[in-house]
Every structure is written in structure tokens, then in C-alpha cells.
Amino acid sequence: MSTTTTAVPEKLWSGGKSPFKVEYGKLMMWYFLMSDAFTFGAFLIAYGTTRFATNGWPNPNEVFKSYPFASENANAPLVFVSIMTFILIISSVTMVLAVQAGQQMKKNAVVINLILTIIGGAAFLSCQAWEWNHLFHEGAWWGRNPFLNADGTASTTNFTNFFFTITGFHGFHVFSGVIINIIMLIMTLTDTFEKRGHYLMIEKAGLYWHFVDLVWVFVFTCFYLI
């Protein structure tokens, strides 16, 4: 048995080294993100299940139709949330650039791109804070749902329950991502990575940050579009 294996050209699996050519921390980050995907997946699937089990559901376009500094009767569905989406995509792009700069050992580029990413994250969080605040003043909160179903019938509180729980959990991830990025920025500024000779930590932080963006793609679709 053992004699018939490992006929692969590079012998990646024969031991003594990583079969994936990655160091353990990055691999661990990948598998952590996979398990986190199941956390979010379970949330979103629970949301879907409840929606399938309920007669009628509010129309998101009637709920999320305002934006900051808008008048009372503003009717601009999808506008504000698309801005939030773009903020997150752009911050993901700057993160990629930071990671690439790290691979080329360009400290200044790392610093600039990390700062941009942090600003993007903070901007997203502020947008979310505004939206939560706005909904709260419309009477929506955990256990309270002022909105009607799309067909005009009464709606259950599960609409707001799931909205606040899942966007809140995502916001918590964004928040911790921002914290991680700030730590990365401090470590870069104090030359920790220069001394270490590599910026592998930033790659891991980058993976986490992209995952946050990835989750938003799903949350955005499930709550605002469908």
C-alpha cells in the first residue's frame, strides 16, 4: 500500500513539508473562515426557513428607502445600501493592494493601503449605525416590527429580528476586522514585519477582511434584493 503511493511528480504529500505550500497560520485562517461560513450560513438559512414558513413578508424596497440627510418622505430604495456595498468592495481592493505590497516588502505602500482599508471599514460601520438608528426611530427593533407585509397584511416580528441579528453579527465581524487591521497597521509602523522578514500576518488579516466582504455580498442579496 505504502509503496504504491506518492507517485505524484512533486511529492507534496510525502511529509516533511506543507502539502499546500502554505504556512500553518494561513491554512488555519482558511479553515476558520470555512467554519465561520457555516455560522453565517446557518443564520441565513434560518432566515430563509422562517421566510418560507411564513405567509407574506415585507417588501425591502419599502423598508430600506431612506438615506442620510434625506427628507421624511424620501423614496430611494437600494441607493444607500449600494453605497455601503461599494464602500466594502473598495476597502477589499485596498486590502488586496496592502497584501501585495507586503509580499514585495514595500512598507509605505502597506501603510497607505491599510489606512485606506481602515477608513473604508469605519465608513461602512458608520453607514450601518446610521441605518440602524434610522430604523429604530421608525419603530423597528428586536421584537418590534412596524412594517407591513408586501400584500398589506400584518407582518411578524421575525423580519426585524433576523435583520438586526444578522446585520449585527456581520457588523461585529467588520468591527473586529477593523481592529485587526489597526493592529496590523501598528505592527507595520513599528517595523515588526520588517524585522520578521515577511508580511504573512497581513495576508491572514486580508483573508479575514475579504471574508467580511464576501459575507456582505450574501447578506446584501438576501435582505435587500430578494
Binding site: 503511493t5 506518492t6 504529500w13 510525502s14 511529509g15 516533511g16 506543507s18 502539502p19 499546500f20 504556512e23
Partner: peptide, 10 residues
């Protein structure tokens, strides 16, 4: 996955 010694294939 990563820390097997030399020769310790799966």
C-alpha cells in the same frame, strides 16, 4: 496536514 514528518504521507 502540515506538520507530518518526512516520509509520513497520508
Amino acid at each position: 496536514l502540515n506538520m507530518r514528518t518526512k516520509g509520513m504521507s497520508m
